Structures are given as structure tokens and as C-alpha cells.
Computed example of a mutant assay.
Amino acid sequence: MTALSKTQRIAAFSLAGAALILFVVFRPSPLHVDSGTVTKGTLQVVLDAEGYSRVRDRFVIGAPVSGRLARVAFREGDSVAKGDTVSELLPAELDAREFRQASARAAAARAAYDEALARERQATIGFEQAGRRSVRYGNLYSEGAVSKESFELARNEADMRLKEAEAARSAASSARFSFEAQQAVIDRQTAGTPVRIVSPVSGTVLRLHEQSERVVPAGAPLFDIGDPSAIEIVIDLLSTDAVRVKPADRVLIEEWGGGKVLEASVKRIEPSGFAKISALGIEEKRVNIIASLSRKESRLGDNFRIQAKIVLDEKSRVLLVPVSSLFRTTAGWKVFIIENGKAAARPVRIGLRSAFYAEVLDGLDEGDRVVVHPTNELRDGMRVAFEN
């Protein structure tokens, strides 16, 4: 083979250098991308929603008859005892028709009182039976005959039956006071005999609907009385989200003003939804979720605004990848992993998903760097640049 002359060698080197320069000049520059790292941690699948706090057992005391209400000496926040007179009502003189109406209302109040007494007896029997079952299961648990879960269920049922019995007792007392107030209207001998309005329970005055002296119609609300330390949380969700919630799910109470996260649990899901107009003017079907606090918080009062997170599922020490790095293809989920300055499409299998992270079951390792928010310009094998 004939050796190249000096001129030919110079020309060849010049052509090779020119080709290299053209390759460097016209080669596509790396695509700038955002990146994230695959890490291990705890993943929570939550529903975020607004809610409010309310007193669990609220008693609204209304005017038993029409008449002139005396000025109320109590203020909101004052404590009252069961049977205390909170105000007096001076009814107007009754004519024959009004007397018949008052008699009918007294008879209805008597029937409601009898029904409340029956409910109280039923709740008392249920509590006594649950108490005996709790004691029996406690003895069986100490002997190893039943599981701890069965014993705890029996004990919790006894506690629940106790609360039901107390509520039924209070309802019976309220019905009795209502009956006595109605009966007092027809029992008075002369017009001008005042009707005492008494508190059916011991508690705190939560709200005064009327404070100054004025004429009020029968049934008009006058006072709200309850125990402000017995607080429950009301969270309204879209009905499509509410079906995912289960009793005993964890609830995290945030942004209530106290600076710490309060723990609660779902007590019940109300069976009936309601319509609500959203901020965009769209009618939505929503459902109230009732949660009870794990520990009492004295600073959280009635009708306070809160932000809640309902934990639907939770896993610890799982491999996490940003949800924004995932994209779906016909073959399934994929991510772009960054290797040696290039983006490589890699199939992955995911499990739980939250708003920001997803659980990686297969396809990635801890410490892998992935492209976050991949654009349509990104292709498999393309050079990329990112900031650490």
C-alpha cells in the first residue's frame, strides 16, 4: 500500500478536525431537567379536608310558651348546674282555644317524657348487661380463655353503653323539665304566674339567643348549654371520598391555632349526605365524618375551624419516588433515571400513592436519581443536565 504523502496526511487531519469541530458545534446541548432522589421513608395516604369542632352533647333550651322573657342574668361561658333557673317567662292569659292548645302540648310533652323514661330504662339494662359481660371477659382473659382483643371489645362496649345510659338519663331529665314547664302553663290559677326555665343538665352556657327582656314565641331558642370539654370533630368530605374512610381511621388535626398536631380517630360516618355549593359554584354531595380526640385539648372550643388529614393507609420504611416523576405508557408505569449524564426510561411497579410520593415495589433502588416533571422533549438516551 502506498504511503500517504505529507500533504495528504495534513489534509486528512484537517478533515478529521473539521468533522470533530462540526460534531461538537452541532451536537444537541444537554436538556436541563429537574431531578429527585429515590429514598426510604414512611408513606401516608391521606385525605385533606376542612372541618370544625363542636360540643358532643348540646342542649338547646327553648321557650315552653309564648310570653315575655325576663332579662337573663347569665353570660356566655358561665357554669350552670342541673335544675338551676336560668330565666323566667311571664305567659299571657290564655283564652279557651289557647288553653286547649296548651293542654295538647302538655299531653305531648308527657308522652315524650314517658318515651324518654323507657329509653333510659332500656339504656340502663344494656349498660348493666355490657358491664357484666366486661367483668366476665376480664376474668376469662386473666385465665387465658379469650384473646385480649375480645376483652378490649367487651370493655369498650361497656364504656359506650355507659355513655348511652348517661345520655338517656339526661334526655329523660330534659323531657321531664319540658313536661313540667308545659304543665305549669295549664296548672296556674291566675294569669301572671311566671314559668321557670331550668337547665336540664350541668354544663356551660355556650350561647345566649336572647338576653334582654322581650316577648318571644313558644319554641324560640333561648340558650345553648353543654360541656365545652367534650369536643368532637366534624369533617365534611365529598361522598366519593367518604366511602374510602373507615371507623377507627387515624385523623391528624392541624391548623387549629395551637401549634401542635392533635390525634383523633374516626368515630362514625354519617349515613346521609347533603348538598353544598363549592367556591366554584358547583353543587357537591358531601358527607360528615365525625372524629373523637384521643386527648382533651382545653384550648379547642366549640365551632373552631380546623384542618384535618384522615389517614387511609400507612407504611413505614418503604422505597419512595416522587409522583411527579412517574408517567404511564401502554406497558405500564415508567420513570426516567439519570445514568452517566443520560436519561434512561425504566419500567417500575408501584404500590401505595399519596399526593407527593409513591411506593416503589420493583424497578428502582435507594439513591437512584430520577427526572421530575419529564417534558415531551425528553427521550430515552438523551443527554440531560441538572443541579444537585
Rank of each mutant, 00 (worst) to 15 (best):
V335E: 10
V311N: 02
R299C: 00
F304L: 10
V311Y: 01
E314S: 13
V266D: 09
R328G: 00
S316G: 07
K334L: 10
T329A: 09
L293M: 09
N303D: 14
D302H: 11
S316I: 06
S278I: 10
G273W: 09
T330E: 13
R305W: 07
S272N: 14
W333N: 09
A331E: 15
S265C: 00
I289G: 02
A291K: 02
K296P: 01
G301A: 12
K267E: 15
I269H: 00
R268A: 15
K315S: 09
V311R: 00
I310L: 10
L300Q: 11
K315A: 10
A275P: 06
S325Y: 08
G332Y: 05
S272T: 15
I282T: 12
K309E: 14
V323M: 10
S316D: 14
G281F: 08
S298I: 12
F304D: 15
I310R: 04
I290P: 01
I306Q: 04
E297C: 03
S316A: 14
K276L: 13
I269A: 02
S324V: 14
L312H: 10
K267Y: 13
I289C: 01
L320C: 03
K285I: 10
S324R: 15
G281D: 08
E314N: 06
A308V: 04
F327R: 03
V311H: 02
S325T: 04
T329V: 05
T329C: 06
A308W: 02
E314H: 08
K315Q: 13
A275F: 14
F304Y: 14
A275N: 12
S316E: 14
K309A: 13
K315P: 01
K315E: 12
F304W: 11
L300I: 09
Q307Y: 05
W333M: 13
N288V: 03
L319I: 05
K296F: 04
D302S: 11
F327T: 06
I310W: 06
V335N: 05
I306D: 03
L320H: 06
F274E: 00
L326P: 01
N303T: 10
L280H: 08
V323N: 04
K315L: 14
T329G: 06
K276C: 03
A291T: 01
S294C: 00
R305K: 10
A291F: 09
S324F: 08
R286D: 09
G332Q: 07
G332P: 01
I306C: 06
S324W: 06
F327C: 03
A308I: 01
R305Y: 08
T329R: 07
I290A: 05
D302E: 13
I310A: 05
G281T: 06
P271D: 05
N303P: 02
S265P: 01
P322L: 09
R268C: 07
D302I: 03
L280D: 12
S325D: 11
L320N: 02
V266W: 11
R299M: 04
K276E: 15
I269C: 00
I269D: 00
A275Q: 15
L320E: 06
L326C: 03
N288I: 02
V287Y: 05
R268E: 15
A291G: 01
K334T: 07
A308E: 09
L300C: 11
D302N: 15
V266A: 09
G273V: 06
A275S: 13
R295Q: 13
G273A: 11
E297G: 02
T329F: 05
R286L: 12
D313A: 15
G332T: 04
F304A: 15
L300S: 07
Q307I: 01
